[in-house]
Design a protein around this nucleic acid. Structure first.
Length: 288
DNA sequence: ATTATTGTTGGTAG
DNA sequence: TCTACCAACAATAA
């Protein structure tokens, strides 16, 4: 499901559900998603861990465990891929999917891939709960590790955690003679967490054609893009916090080919750019 | 039946 | 070492 805002939303959920909780029973059979890839080893190393913090960098999540945890099981890295999400189930209550990017009709635990049974004490009462990872396409990853993994270490600055340094961006983009500005923004070593939707929305807001060369974007445009990224990330985050997941498409132009541009009413167009679908207003987004 | 989908990675070539 | 391009991964939904 996820780009930066959805993953941050997931982080806040996991923090509420799991911080201070102990993993009593871990269940998975999916050698494709978890590491260590032998599910029995994954389960064994994870059982008994206590979650002390839930962090996010870009589209990656990191659960930290108690410092007494075995050296090889200090942290759990999670990537939701394209279609992963987490459920929360309290014993005795109905388990209902809450993936904010899935339509209400497709809610299901049919594609459960891993389950974490936890106990935690809330106001003096010990509660039995479960956190469930669901992922139809199985592109997600749940990686138990001691040290940081390369995927985490190689990430660029996170727009929310670190802010956007326009001067540093300009330096990186200057050398990208063939790459488009949209592809450059989606490069996770440039900015961690910007995906197809957020790039589309930000470039629309800044009135820049996504096909513009990255090296052709001047400092003024870059400052505008930084502002637009903050705008679309915050907007998406607010939409998610509202929690009414029945709303089909909360975005301004993404997925709205043929609809009038919210700014100038020109019909929006769609095309492929670097293998990803891209929506623009052909009138008010111009080439640099 | 066909096309499209919110993402990453590993190979190859330059 | 850096950049660029592509196929692969999997399961729907329209």
């Amino acid at each position: 499901m996820p780009e930066l805002p959805e993953v941050e939303h997931t982080r806040r959920n996991l923090d509420r559900w799991m911080r201070g909780a102990t993993l009593k029973k871990v269940t998975t059979e999916d050698a494709r998603i978890v590491a260590p890839t032998k599910p029995s080893a994954f389960v064994r190393a994870l059982t008994g861990r206590t979650v002390t913090a839930v962090e996010r960098r870009g589209k990656w999540l990191r659960l930290l465990f108690e410092k007494e945890a075995p050296a090889k099981a200090r942290q759990l890295f999670v990537h939701l891929g394209m279609t992963g999400w987490f459920e929360h189930a309290i014993a005795g209550q109905e388990e209902v999917a809450t993936n904010p990017l899935q339509s209400a009709g497709s809610r299901s635990l049919r594609f459960e891939r891993a389950r974490f049974a936890i106990t935690r004490t809330v106001r003096g009462k010990t509660r039995q709960e479960s956190v469930i990872y669901v992922d139809p396409r199985r592109w997600g990853r749940i990686i138990l590790a001691g040290d940081d993994i390369p995927a985490w270490t190689s990430l660029g600055p996170d727009p929310l955690v670190d802010g956007i340094d326009v001067a540093r961006l300009a330096k990186k983009f200057a050398r990208r003679k063939k790459q488009s500005i949209k592809e450059a923004l989606m490069d996770q070593t440039v900015l961690a967490g910007v995906g197809n939707i957020q790039a589309i929305e930000a470039l629309w807001k800044s009135k820049i054609d996504p096909r513009s060369g990255a090296s052709a974007i001047g400092p003024k445009d870059l400052a505008s893009i930084a502002k637009s990224l903050r705008w679309t990330i915050e907007r998406t985050l607010d939409d998610l916090a509202k929690g009414d997941d029945g709303v089909d498409n909360p975005f301004k132009v993404y997925g709205r080919k043929g609809e009038p541009c919210p700014r100038c009413k020109t019909p929006l167009e769609r095309f492929d750019l670097g293998g990803r679908t891209t929506t623009i207003c052909p009138a008010c987004q111009t080439l640099r």
